[in-house]
Design a protein around this nucleic acid. Structure first.
Length: 564
RNA sequence: GCGCCCAUAGCUCAAUUGGAUAGAGCGUUUGGCUACGGACCAAGAGGUUGAGGGUUCAAAUCCUUCUGGGCGCGCCA
């Protein structure tokens, strides 16, 4: 929409000898005055050393000369201190809307090139229960994945399981202590043992050492430990998949760090051949600091002095694998902000060694979920809150909100619970920390998932089974105009969300759209209308609004229930 | 110690990346509708954008100093 307007106005800027980039329009910050505004007059004045008022007036004159401008613009004026205010015509709005209706996906345009994007999100750990800290990577990652897909990227999602690490040794130690065999392992057992062993190891250095030894032996192929690991892996992954399924989060690949170890030798050979590896105090390292660094970047440690590979090495091996299998243009890591330095090291290493060729690596970081004390959220007993418990708590609270909620379909309740949790998360700016508050995650009033769903369900009630969309040119009142205008923004919003990897733009838009839609049908009674054209237009308008909401909610991994 | 991020209404967050009168939700005050649904709508109160200085026609946004918080910093993942 904005682009169309820019393209239209470009001519006037070029005629006056100004660069066409100055025709940049933005949505008005004063909707009481106009629909769009141009803020570039002062920039032109600075570049050309001319009087801004003269520039503004000349531009208005020139714009008014544009062929059939009155079809598009109802009013255009230059106002002090230096804005060009544009009110677009009703005809323009309706024509644009009608062409969007005919297009696929509500006018969301696909990118032209064929771009492959690996999206790495989730990162759950085998043998550890999923906790609230896993919510953000799952939901934000899935949402980014869907947004990129709808924009036409070829995406490959990978959960990147944490299936290597001390927790394996800890749990195996705990199982053996209790004389349990691999076939005794259940998810309940794992969820009980891991936290206990984790805190035990913090207190008891001897046990910690034993667990480390078990972990090492497991990796070296100890058969007894392998038999424990295999069952732990299956049981744990099953449970992880159950919760992800509930959240409607899915992956093309369920690879783990373990899978990357197959490429370890190849990776090491590759790095050695590039002459970037040094030996320092018995460890193999790569120096990734640059001369002009403002901060000190410690070297990346590839191999510890005891021979074992580390976190960064397995990430590099994973990259090696991805380059070989997928040859992607981008690898996106949807991972907690606290890993920033780690990724900086890994990315620099890739660049220095040429491992990723031209592929772009991005850390799409997100903030931590904190408790009311500002520190990473923990329950009263000091453990992280399990994702299962969060989901069940939210479900229980939701059902208790209204007597009639008890009779709802199970699927509908689950859809609403999903919307509560996901919208509460996705409406936040991805990069900022946020304070976890169970009240916030059970709220159904105001700016929440249920408000959006409620709006969609009410629309459905009004439009019934209608699927025909035929929106007339005439706009009948303010509510009508506001809604039509808002519907034109979809492509700009989704594009922005895709480019910045920020689902929150879509969340914000959906909320605004729902507010406008609520105002529309509450102030315009539709079923009592006698004017058939008007009635048909408004039902069409709502039918299209429903389509937009459905498409955009899916990008936030939210589904509309049948009833509420 | 070094570095990165943050500070906006009582609380939780926005602000089109430098634009006009800083907007929402919760809470609070007032009014409305009851199946095209009150999980709603309409209206009000609530702000020296942590503090000072600077750049600019224009600063919550950029630079600088200070205060207060969070996070990270070589062989854990």
């Amino acid at each position: 929409m904005k682009e169309k307007l820019e393209l239209l106005l470009e001519e006037a800027f070029l005629n006056l000898g100004y660069d066409k980039s100055y025709s940049k329009v933005s949505i008005s910050s004063r909707p009481d005055l106009c629909d769009f505004q141009i803020n570039t007059v002062f920039s032109i004045a600075k570049e050309k050393h001319e009087n801004p008022v003269e520039i503004g007036n000349k531009l208005i004159e020139e714009i008014k000369k544009i062929n059939s401008i009155s079809d598009y613009v109802q009013k255009i004026e230059f106002v002090l201190p230096g804005f060009i205010n544009i009110t677009i015509s009703d005809k323009f709005i309706s024509n644009e809307l009608n062409s969007l209706v005919k297009s696929n996906n509500c006018g969301i345009e696909k990118i032209n090139e064929n771009i492959t994007c690996v999206v790495d999100y989730g990162g759950p750990n085998i043998a550890k229960p999923l906790h609230v800290g896993h919510l953000r990577p799952a939901v934000i990652g899935e949402s980014i994945n869907r947004i990129l897909k709808i924009k036409g990227y070829h995406t490959i999602s990978d959960v990147h399981l944490g299936d290597i690490g001390l927790q394996m040794g800890q749990v195996i130690y705990g199982l053996k202590e209790r004389n349990l065999n691999p076939e005794d392992i259940t998810i309940e057992l794992l969820q009980e043992i891991y936290p206990k062993m984790s805190s035990l190891c913090k207190k008891d250095k001897e046990i910690l050492e034993k667990c480390k030894q078990i972990t090492n032996d497991l990796q070296s192929g100890n058969e007894e430990y392998q038999s424990y690991f295999k069952v732990m892996y299956d049981v744990s992954l099953n449970d992880i998949k159950r919760i992800y399924k509930y959240l409607d989060v899915d992956f093309d690949y369920w690879y783990g760090e373990k899978d990357s170890y197959k490429y370890m030798d190849d990776l090491m050979k590759f790095l050695e051949s590039k002459n970037v590896v040094e030996v320092d105090e018995g460890a193999k390292i790569i120096r990734v600091a640059n001369e002009d660094d403002k901060k000190e970047i410690p070297p990346l440690i590839l191999q510890a002095s005891n021979g074992s590979y580390l976190y960064a090495t397995s990430d590099l091996a994973t990259i090696y694998q991805r380059m070989k299998d997928f040859n992607p243009d981008y690898i996106l890591y949807v991972v907690d902000d606290r890993q920033a330095l780690h990724f900086e090291q890994v990315f620099r290493c890739c660049k220095k060694s040429g491992l990723t060729k031209k592929a772009i690596l991005e850390h799409n970081k997100f903030g931590t979920i904190n408790g009311p004390d500002g520190k990473p959220f923990k329950t009263r007993n000091g453990e992280a809150l399990k994702l299962d418990d969060l989901i069940n708590d939210v479900k229980e609270i939701f059902i208790s909100k209204k007597e009639s909620n008890k009779d709802m379909d199970k699927e509908d309740i689950d859809k609403i619970v999903n919307s509560i949790i996901k919208f509460a998360d996705l409406q936040n700016n991805r990069e900022k920390n946020y304070i976890f508050d169970i009240d916030k995650f059970s709220d159904v009033n105001g700016k929440t998932g249920p408000y959006l769903l409620y709006t969609a369900v009410r629309i459905k009630k009004i439009i019934g089974e209608n699927i025909n969309i035929n929106i007339g040119e005439e706009i009948y009142n303010k509510y009508d105009r506001d809604l039509r205008k808002k519907l034109l923004e979809v492509n700009d919003i989704v594009t922005k969300a895709a480019n910045t990897r920020m689902p929150s733009y879509i969340a914000d838009y959906l909320y605004d759209l729902a507010v406008i839609t609520n105002a529309f049908y509450q102030n315009n009674n539709i079923s009592n209308l006698t004017d058939e054209l008007m009635k048909n237009t408004w039902i069409s308008l709502l039918t299209y609004t429903y389509q937009v909401m459905d498409v955009l909610l899916k990008l936030l991994v939210i589904d509309i229930p049948s009833k509420m």
